[in-house]
């Protein structure tokens, strides 16, 4: 496959960036999108040019490190991570636009790399359970009802890639935040911090400069892990419940 790439190049956070055009030839349809970028970078290095910076780690769709906006879609045309997107999803001769996640809370570090540490601060403000460390607890000490376990597992799938923020017209982090709130608030282990968790995490989310939810549903259509839109509604319910209780548990 021969492709024309238009990639956002930006030297550092302060410099202005621009879309730069590159041609890549002999791309195998079986390559992943990141391998295609690797091929481009090898050529750029040989030509003595600066390679395109992009985030990646596991390359098997479970870490959440990679993620770029491809032709206006977060993670591209398939509902998966960028590393699991294959070039067979494109046609020979295509022009592909590649841009970084765009959000005030995700400043561009370089080229396609953005700083997603705002997500870490949201998690740090309540996305955990307080438990004594040491030896593993006895497995039967806290029974978890099957429906609660299922809900928790489904929401625990979030890998924090940030596609939801990138796709949302408001740059909102509601789907990410709600995935963690619903995950932990569904479990008995999360119950002692049920109220403070949702209030603190929403506060941090707002303070980081993410926008609000207008229920466009864009987040859930790009989520590689299929976090449902209903988790936002569940978090709103938890937020209202916690507010009524003044942030205190029973």
């Amino acid at each position: 496959m021969n492709l024309t790439l238009r990639i956002w190049r930006q030297r550092d956070p302060e410099s202005p960036g621009a879309m730069t055009t590159y041609e890549v030839a002999d791309i195998s349809p079986d390559m992943s999108f990141l391998e295609m970028l690797d091929t481009l970078n090898e050529e750029l290095i040989l030509r003595g040019e600066e390679p395109v910076a992009f985030d990646h780690d596991c390359r098997e769709g479970i870490c959440g490190a990679c993620g770029v906006v491809i032709n206006g879609d977060a993670h591209g045309p398939e509902r998966t991570t960028t590393c699991q997107l294959h070039m067979r999803s494109f046609e020979d001769g295509d022009t592909i636009d590649v841009e970084p996640w765009r959000a005030a809370a995700f400043p561009v570090v370089k080229d396609l790399v953005v700083d997603r540490s705002a997500f870490d601060r949201i998690i740090g403000s309540g996305g955990y359970v307080t438990a004594p460390t040491g030896s593993a607890p006895e497995a039967h000490a806290t029974p978890v009802p099957k429906p609660s376990a299922d809900t928790a597992f489904e929401h625990a799938e979030c890998i924090g890639c940030g596609a939801c923020v990138a796709a949302c017209p408001n740059g909102s982090a509601m789907l990410f935040t709600s995935a963690k709130v619903v995950h932990l608030n569904s479990l008995p282990q999360g119950a002692p911090e049920r109220e403070s968790r949702v209030l603190d995490m929403v506060d941090t989310m707002d303070a980081e400069g993410f926008g609000g939810c207008t229920v466009t549903g864009m987040c859930t259509t790009v989520c590689p892990k299929g976090i449902p839109l209903s988790s936002i509604s569940t978090m709103n319910r938890e937020f209202l419940r916690a507010t009524r209780r003044g942030g205190r548990p029973d």
């Binding site: 906006v69 879609d73 841009e99 400069g209 926008g211 229920v215 466009t216 549903g217 864009m218």
Partner: peptide, 28 residues
Amino acid sequence: QLSRRDVAARPVGYRHRRARTSYATRTM
């Protein structure tokens, strides 16, 4: 106030733009 926040949360837009939300959503 929410709209001001939402606009500020996406200071740089995408070059490759596509309108994918419904007409009712976009015209709120």
